[in-house]
Design a binder for these strands. Structure first.
Lengths: 121, 121
DNA sequence: ACCTTGTTTCGACGTTCATCTAAGCACTGA
DNA sequence: TCAGTGCTTAGATGAACGTCGAAACAAGGT
């Protein structure tokens, strides 16, 4: 009869350590800053319109803002708003060339999201 | 003097087709359903608390709900709310074993997000 | 200088969200 | 059967969000 049998029904994470309360060994938690930063990127993608925009940009390597408006079926004002959110999150960049503004993805930022979602075990 | 020179400053996506208005060839757009579905998963991750939860689950393969509460520093009620959103999005599953509920990630869903963010060119 | 067209900003409106407290449900052990 | 503990649901509240029309700004062409 050991501690193991006493704690037989405790969570897996808690089992290695003999603690009084059954359920309180904290799993290593991500830092606040990282969590906020990642959540910010996810928030930037948390709307169908912006997902569509990203999809357009992933398929075309460069897209004019006016095409984005048509592609997502939203007002120019609304489209500009969404593009700003994506820009602020660092997921896309836009540069003006004459009358038009051209947008492209920022591959490194997308890679950062992909990495964060990778299984570590 | 051809159409090409006339449209020399049109967006790249528009160039192949000789159209009257300079800027209106729609890039292939993702379907509404896919966009909504993907945005739903991103929305589920669009909060630091839920990012932390996912991080815990990615590192531990199974975590008790009570550990989640401690890990993210939120009320049990708030934690349960966040876990429900993650469950509804299909990103995690939880099963009750006796008193406690154990959560784990759903790798296929995370893979779906990763795939959606992959560059196609 | 003007007018036209593409883009962004502003202000407003209704909706959704994160959080808490309090109450309910699920399970265990005495 | 009852008390205690973990988890979820309900209701309320203040903040953030998506959308649009209107106005402002930027560039180009006449």
């Amino acid at each position: 009869m050991t501690i193991d049998t006493l704690n037989a029904d405790t969570p897996a994470a808690a089992r290695p350590l003999p603690v009084l309360n059954a359920c309180c060994v904290p799993t290593s938690t991500m830092g606040d800053d990282d969590a906020v930063s990642l959540a910010g990127m996810f928030k930037a993608l948390a709307d169908p319109a912006r997902v569509k925009i990203l999809s357009m940009l992933l398929n075309a390597d460069e897209v004019c803002a006016c095409d984005v408006s048509d592609g997502i079926g939203k007002t120019a004002a609304t489209t500009s708003h969404h593009l700003k959110l994506l820009r602020d999150a660092g997921l896309v960049t836009g540069d003006r060339r004459g009358t038009w503004v051209y947008y492209r993805v920022v591959p490194e930022r997308l890679a950062a999201i992909r990495d964060a979602l990778a299984l570590t075990r």
